[in-house]
Amino acid sequence: MAKKSKVHKTNAMRIVEQKKLPYKQYEFPWSEEHLGTDSVSELLGVEEKRIFKTLVAVGNKTGPIVAVIPGNTELDLKKLAKVSGNKKVDMLHLRELEETTGYIRGGCSPIGMKKLFPTYIGLEAEQYPAIIVSAGQRGLQFELAPKDIAALTRAKIVDITL
């Protein structure tokens, strides 16, 4: 059964508003079975390639690393390792996500994590004036300019997808 999000200001939203950056908010009902970008794309009526997922990995030298990539692509761990200065990168275990970032699966925003981790946005983001990312809560997304996301997270826009 889909649950309607009870919207309150998330850390990500507060940060974006504090910087007075323009954004568009999307609210939608969610369920555990339908947290992927394909489901979100269908619910919002937006191409899946414009909805970017936030993934957290761990580098052998840097520790946690954030990757923001289009929902219709896969993260290339070798490319991420190279751009982040690591020899090896593995995905952060799901049970460590909330403790590390402050966010849960399906509601992990690149903006407003507990710490400012090295962040890399997929090169595909440059194709769009705005991309859609999690606003920090399940059932809540927002659309922002890639350059604004990069500025807020000190991200580099690089080739990190397969």
Results as ranks from 00 to 15, higher is better:
R105H: 12
V133Q: 02
I149T: 05
N60R: 10
K61I: 09
A151Y: 13
L92K: 05
C108P: 01
K156T: 12
G139E: 02
S39Y: 11
V7M: 10
T73C: 12
V46L: 13
Y26E: 07
T119R: 06
I149W: 00
L35D: 07
K87N: 13
H34F: 08
R138G: 01
L44Q: 03
M13G: 02
L55Q: 00
G106W: 06
T73L: 14
T153L: 07
L35G: 09
K82E: 14
F28N: 04
M13Q: 12
T37G: 00
V66T: 05
A155N: 01
A150N: 02
M91N: 12
V83L: 09
G102D: 05
H8V: 13
A12Y: 00
K156Y: 10
E47N: 13
S39R: 03
L75Q: 03
S84Y: 08
S5M: 10
P29M: 09
T54C: 09
Q25G: 08
T119C: 11
K3I: 13
S39Q: 00
K53F: 05
G106A: 10
L92G: 01
M13S: 08
K4N: 14
V68T: 00
Q127D: 14
Q25I: 15
L80M: 08
G59R: 03
S41D: 10
D159F: 11
K49N: 14
L97Q: 07
K6L: 11
I111M: 07
F28H: 13
A67S: 13
E33D: 15
F142K: 08
V16R: 02
A151V: 12
R138N: 02
L97S: 03
Y103E: 01
L75S: 00
D90A: 15
I149C: 03
I131R: 00
D76L: 05
T153W: 03
A57L: 07
V16M: 05
F142D: 06
N11D: 14
I121P: 00
K20R: 14
L35P: 04
P29K: 08
D38N: 12
K88C: 04
A12Q: 06
L35C: 10
Y26R: 03
Q127R: 15
A130P: 00
R154A: 15
K115M: 01
T161F: 07
V133C: 08
L140H: 11
